[in-house]
Design a protein around this nucleic acid. Structure first.
Length: 429
DNA sequence: TGTCCACTGGAAGGGAGGGCTT
DNA sequence: AAGCCCTCCCTTCCAGTGGACA
């Protein structure tokens, strides 16, 4: 075989034989420790669908990594399993009234699909038949998409359970139009029934809903509490046992540390699993036969750095320029900046990089977006007669972030402008 | 107590871009 | 080809705001 960039790594021995994918948050295990009560409650609501009736709409609340999505998808998987086990025959005996084949689940992540057109299109395209065409990415009037969606669902008698994950993102971005339509769809269907499961990180998002939508949507409510460190430890132990069955690669204190670190951040199981998985990968890369607590701390740093990097790299150009202006002012010793100062800096950066600056109004929004991403800290402060404005400071390491922004090829000319003082000097020369 | 500053942030609308319909 | 729909990004306009200061 010709030597290739990968050959060296292909020859290197795999240190851990287990399946690391089991440590990914997206993996749905056979058991969901400390969520049995919620699984049972949701199952008792959803069993109505197997009888061919419409289950109540359900709203599920809870912070990130509290098992909301996992519980819903767990039940979806159980329905699919029932379908497979009864592929050829109906239920027999006392279960004759149930028909699992008429139940359809549709899962939409509203963080990815965040427009009302997008949501309707995605649901509609799940019910393609011989005669129906694909609903296009864009172009159809909303009314047509909705009519097509109804026709497709109503083509045969069935119960459709639509899961809208991260529903608060959809509502905050596109309003409650979709929910209004979906929650009243049953009155317009002849033979099918639709039930909604909304999953949200924020309890208060229903305040922004039309009262009719709110009451239809929240027929049942479930609130998932955060996991504590002990519960996280159980979750991690179970996953590790499954992932690395015969291997004894992890000390107890590694699992305890991951659980404790994640418990500090509102009991986020996703975070705990990421820590554990990345720590394992780091240990493997270092050819260690054991994962220890040092690997966990390294994993913690790596995850934090990757988050910042990812957030900065994917920013649109003008958001990068705004961030750049904030960081450059900071390196010049300006600790806290006002919106006016950031805008002045931003215009300087635009001039040097040959771009037309946006208006201050738009930059105000960009600063709020940077704040939401956790890249800057911005809070409104009044300076009395000197006005009321935002006080802004970066919340990421300056030097590292500047170099990430400078990798953007469209911002190359800005590299020449290391400080505003340099620029002032350039202008004088 | 009223004034004033430097904005904030909502509302409305323009226009570009992607895509469908007639 | 012209007309239409939807989304996204942006501008313009403007009422509202908190608190220092006269």
């Amino acid at each position: 075989m010709e030597p290739n960039i990968f050959t060296t790594y292909m020859h290197s021995k795999k240190v851990f034989k287990g399946n690391k994918d089991i440590l990914r948050p997206s993996y749905i295990p056979e058991q969901l420790p400390h969520r049995e009560e919620y699984i049972n409650e949701l199952a008792s609501i959803m069993v109505t669908a197997l009888r061919g009736n419409r289950p109540s709409n359900v709203l599920i609340f809870g912070k990130t990594g509290t098992g909301k999505t996992a519980v819903v998808r767990y039940l979806e998987r159980e329905v699919e399993r029932l379908k497979r086990e009864n592929a050829d025959s109906q239920f027999q005996g006392e279960f004759q009234e149930f028909n699992v084949h008429r139940v359809n689940y549709v899962y939409i992540n509203c963080e990815v699909v965040d427009t009302h057109y997008g949501v309707m299109k995605n649901i509609g395209n799940k019910f393609m038949s011989e005669w129906s065409e694909q609903i296009p990415f864009t172009g159809w009037p909303m009314e047509k998409v909705y009519e097509s969606l109804k026709e497709r669902i109503d083509e045969e008698p069935r119960v459709v359970v639509i899961i809208l994950d991260e529903l608060d993102k959809l509502v905050s971005k596109s309003g409650d139009t979709v929910l209004y339509h979906l929650s009243k769809i049953n009155s317009e269907l002849k033979q099918s029934k639709v039930s909604l499961i909304g999953i949200s990180n924020h309890l208060k998002f229903t305040e922004f809903l039309d009262p009719r939508v709110r009451s239809r949507l929240g027929e049942e409510k479930l609130i998932f509490p955060p996991y504590n460190a002990e519960q996280l430890k159980d979750i991690l132990t179970e996953r590790v046992n499954k992932a690395f069955e015969a291997e004894n690669i992890m000390d107890d204190d590694v699992i305890a540390l991951c659980a404790a670190l994640a418990a500090q951040e509102h009991g986020d199981a996703r975070r705990a699993l990421d820590l554990l998985r990345v720590a394992t990968e780091i240990a493997e890369r270092e050819h260690c036969e054991h994962v220890d607590t040092n690997h966990v701390y390294k994993a913690k740093n790596k995850i934090e750095q990757d988050c910042v990097r990812e957030a900065v790299i994917t920013l649109p150009t003008h958001s990068k320029l705004t961030m750049y202006a904030i960081l450059l002012s900071r390196t010049n010793g300006h600790n806290k900046l006002t919106t006016g100062e950031v805008y002045a800096g931003y215009k300087e950066v635009c001039t040097v990089s040959g771009m037309d600056p946006l208006t201050q109004r738009r930059i105000t929004d960009i600063i709020s977006e940077l704040d939401m991403l956790g890249l800057v800290n911005a809070r409104v402060k009044s300076f009395g007669r000197r006005g009321r404005t935002k006080e802004i400071q970066p919340s990421v390491p300056e030097v590292d972030t500047i170099s990430i922004i400078e990798q953007d090829e469209t911002i190359i000319p800005v590299k020449k402008l290391r400080t505003f003082e340099d620029h002032q000097q350039m202008k004088l020369m």
